[in-house]
Design a protein around this nucleic acid. Structure first.
Length: 316
DNA sequence: CGCTTTTGACCAGCGC
DNA sequence: GCGCTGGTCAAAAGCG
């Protein structure tokens, strides 16, 4: 809780009346100044005042731009770090038993199991028939794996992801002493989404949640919805969500695959292009000014980056 | 009393 | 075919 506020202030992420990008204050003043130079003989006082104003605005604009670029860079660094952590966990999980079941997660060609958002045959639309029908009749569903960092003392497998779930089973699996819990969306059977939650075998403070299918209804958490929409709108290449829980500035690192044909490797932030970088900055500025929760989430994420590989605060 | 969670049993897929 | 394992069901227990 506290760290997000200090990081917010130390990085000066507080919301300011940032000009909308399309208003381009510096250019407006500059243009007026040029016009003034052309149309009048030149009131020197007025010109110098305008020049001063121009310089001031330019400096402010530069400062704000640099601030946002810093935010971008911090974010990118954080993201790379998270990808590293996830890679490590994913490598651990590529065990024979993990590859065994046909419909769960077969490793991709590169052998990198970070990406877990793909078609599968493991979900049925009809709960009553699911138990009896041959597996071949099941429909394809998206598989998404999400890693949650939890406090060591928290032994529950409850994952606050904005949806309501009903637990329908629990199993001890062969390769992991921690039990695996099975959940269905509380909106079932109208919503076919299921999830499996299990602690990582080696780092039990990390919870691995595997989602199957997609919700056909809005999330019960408005906060998450807001944050997701902002995160998706502004950071196309970011992990799919940066959500807040009401209990504090917790960050959900949701490494869903943005597009079917992309994976985490090639979804690295592409801010090399100046135009794209500028666009990203502008979008971030827009979001920062419009949504305080986004600012808090970003601040929390950056605080995690500064605090170390595992933020002192739980991820979720 | 109704809803949720727990838990033992059952079923299907897979390897041998 | 058999055994192992993961996934699911459904009755019982727990809880507000």
């Amino acid at each position: 809780m506290g760290s997000s506020s200090w990081i917010s202030s130390s990085l000066d992420l507080s919301i300011r009346p940032l000009q909308a990008p399309d208003e381009a204050p510096t250019k407006v003043v500059e243009s007026n100044f040029m016009e003034l130079g052309r149309t009048s003989s030149g009131n020197k006082d007025q010109s110098s005042a305008l020049l001063e104003e121009l310089n001031r605005l330019a400096a402010e604009n530069k400062k704000l731009t640099q601030m946002l670029m810093t935010v971008c860079e911090n974010y990118n660094a954080l993201r790379n770090q998270v990808i590293g952590i996830v890679s490590k966990n994913a490598e651990r999980e590529i065990s024979p038993s993990f590859k065994k079941r046909k419909s769960e997660s077969s490793t991709n060609d590169s052998g990198n199991e970070i990406v877990v958002n793909r078609a599968s045959e493991s979900s049925s639309t009809d709960d009553d028939d699911l138990y009896k029908k041959p597996r071949e009749e099941t429909i394809k569903a998206k598989i998404t794996r999400v890693y949650y960092k939890t406090e060591g003392s928290n032994a529950s497998l409850i994952v606050k992801d904005g949806h309501q779930w009903r637990k329908y089973g629990q199993k001890i699996t062969r390769d992991n002493p921690c039990p695996r819990a099975y959940f269905k969306c509380a909106h079932a059977p109208s919503c076919p989404v299921k999830k499996k939650v299990q602690r990582s075998a080696e780092d039990q403070s990390v919870i691995v949640a595997t989602y199957e299918g997609e919700h056909n209804h809005p999330s019960s958490s408005l906060l998450e919805a807001t944050c997701r929409s902002n995160a998706r709108a502004t950071l196309d290449s970011v992990p799919r969500s940066a959500s807040l829980s009401s209990s504090g500035p917790t960050v959900t690192l949701d490494l869903m695959k943005p597009e079917p044909e992309t994976d985490v490797k090639n979804s690295q932030p592409k801010v090399d292009s100046p135009e794209l970088r500028q666009f990203l900055i502008e979008q971030m500025a827009s979001s920062l000014t419009k949504d305080p929760s986004f600012t808090t989430a970003l601040a929390a994420a950056i605080s995690g980056k500064i605090a170390g590989p595992y933020p002192t605060e739980k991820w979720l």
